[in-house]
Computed example of a mutant assay.
Amino acid sequence: MNEAERIEKLTGEVAALNAFCLALIGAYPDRAELARHFNGLVESLTAQSLAMPVPELRLQGMRDFASGLQEAIRRYDELASAARSGSRPAADGTAQL
């Protein structure tokens, strides 16, 4: 497998992992607790990575992926709040009355 094929394979694996994470977020009963726990793990992983010679692009990739998952948790909470209050979600995932 050449480098381009390995990158394509990794891209597919990351996409599948992201989809799985989003499914877990959507099904998790206490997203506030999930967010707290996830944020703690991200901070710990980042601190461990900073203690080693890790390429900046890898750190940026971790930050970007974690930020995307944190945003997904926030959006799921907004959608759940909108459903409870009777408002409908907008196309961008925010709640509208």
Rank of each mutant, 00 (worst) to 15 (best):
C21A: 13
S67C: 12
G40N: 12
L22N: 00
L17F: 11
F20L: 13
E43K: 12
E3T: 06
L79W: 01
L22I: 03
A15W: 10
D30P: 08
R31H: 03
F20I: 14
E33C: 04
D64G: 08
A72S: 00
A16H: 06
A23F: 00
T46F: 07
R74H: 04
M52R: 00
A23T: 04
L41K: 15
G68I: 02
E5L: 05
R74G: 03
I25T: 02
A51S: 14
R58M: 13
E78Q: 08
L79Q: 04
A72W: 00
L57G: 15
E43Y: 04
V54G: 05
A66R: 06
L17C: 12
D64K: 14
L22Y: 00
I73E: 02
D30H: 05
N18Q: 09
E33P: 07
L57K: 05
A27R: 02
R36M: 11
S49L: 06
V14I: 14
A4M: 05
L10N: 10
L57H: 07
G12H: 01
S81A: 11
A19R: 14
N18W: 13
L59I: 03
E78P: 00
L17P: 11
A16L: 13
G61L: 03
F20D: 15
A35V: 10
Y28D: 15
A51R: 12
P53Q: 11
L79E: 09
L22K: 01
E8T: 11
P55M: 09
E43N: 08
E5M: 08
Y28G: 09
L17H: 10
A16I: 14
R74D: 02
Q60D: 15
E56M: 06
A4H: 07
D30A: 08
M62Y: 04
L79V: 05
S81C: 05
T11M: 05
L59E: 01
L57A: 08
S81Y: 10
F38K: 11
L57N: 09
S44W: 13
M52V: 01
M62T: 01
E5K: 13
Q48E: 10
L69W: 03
P29N: 06
Y76R: 14
L45V: 09
A66D: 07
Q60E: 11
E8W: 05
F20K: 15
G12E: 04
L41T: 12
E5F: 03
A80I: 05
S67R: 14
A35S: 08
L34Q: 04
A80T: 00
R58F: 01
R31Y: 05
A72R: 02
E33Y: 07
A47S: 09
P53E: 12
P29Q: 10
A19L: 09
S81R: 06
S67E: 11
